[in-house]
């Protein structure tokens, strides 16, 4: 049996559903039916996977949560950090990256934690304290050469509570404060369907969703490993 044009249209519908992280198969009967077809129909599944491969994306998980897609950096669907507010220079992008890694490290400290699907909670304050503590430890660690260019200093230079005292942003967190970046990254994660606010748990508390566990555990963590390993390799050979 080969796939008809109609089937190929359904491939498109399923991918369109998967591209919307907040859409749930539980709430959408078409999505549910196509997800079931993806799981059961080998040919259909192959077609979806091949189309995604052409788009530099792949399926990370096909649970009841829906089709969770991972992208390669060059994909058209890859997120551009410069789309985030106040992200202009390289330092800003580094901060967003550092904070994302820190949130993951805080919620999933060991490899085994990715196997446990119980709910994780974070708050802006906890994450800020977590990174701050790591910076303090590094400050105390003696280094043989005085290097002022380490990545953690970017974060350490930010004040935790700085707020603009005049102008339009008065009383709001300024991008010169570390909590601004933590709150901004968590807010972005909410937009991407990775987290949701949990006001009942205290101010600026968030619940990390199942999607977060999948993206970090199945894709982002290992891919970053590889990038780091490649950099180390370059250092050794050069």
């Amino acid at each position: 049996m080969t796939l008809s044009q109609r089937d190929l249209a359904e491939v498109g519908v399923l991918i369109a559903c998967a591209l919307r992280p907040k859409m749930r198969p539980g709430a959408d009967s078409d999505y549910r039916r196509l997800l079931g077809r993806y799981r059961a129909d080998f040919e259909f599944r192959n077609a979806v996977d091949s189309v995604l491969d052409g788009l530099d994306a792949r399926v990370l998980s096909d649970s009841d949560l829906g089709l969770v897609l991972g992208v390669r950096r060059e994909s058209v669907f890859a997120f551009r950090l410069s789309d985030l507010p106040n992200v202009t220079g390289v330092t800003d992008r580094l901060l967003v990256g550092l904070v994302s890694v820190a949130i993951t490290a805080y919620a999933y400290p060991t490899p085994a934690d990715f196997d446990d699907d119980r709910v994780r909670w974070v708050s802006v304050e906890e994450v800020e304290r977590f990174i701050r503590d790591a910076c303090e430890r590094l400050k105390r660690t003696p280094t043989d050469e005085e290097s002022l260019d380490e990545a953690w200093r970017c974060y350490d230079r930010l004040s935790p509570g700085y707020k603009a005292d005049r102008g339009k942003g008065k009383g709001r967190r300024s991008p010169a404060s570390s909590t601004y970046w933590v709150a901004s990254v968590l807010g972005w994660m909410v937009d991407q369907g990775l987290a949701r606010p949990a006001p009942a748990r205290g101010p600026e508390a968030y619940q990390l969703l199942e999607r977060f566990r999948i993206q970090a555990g199945e894709l982002a963590g290992n891919a970053t490993y590889d990038v780091l390993a490649a950099i180390r390799q370059d250092e050794v050979t050069s």
């Binding site: 580094l94 890694v101 990545a151 953690w152 891919a223 780091l228």
Partner: peptide, 24 residues
């Protein structure tokens, strides 16, 4: 990442965020 030089850390840090984000 924290102990890398800033210039070198950007690439892996950004990779993590982008891959974590899923699709846009």
């Amino acid at each position: 990442l924290l102990t890398m030089p800033t210039k070198g850390a950007i690439e892996p840090a950004e990779t993590f965020s982008i891959l974590l984000a899923g699709t846009q």
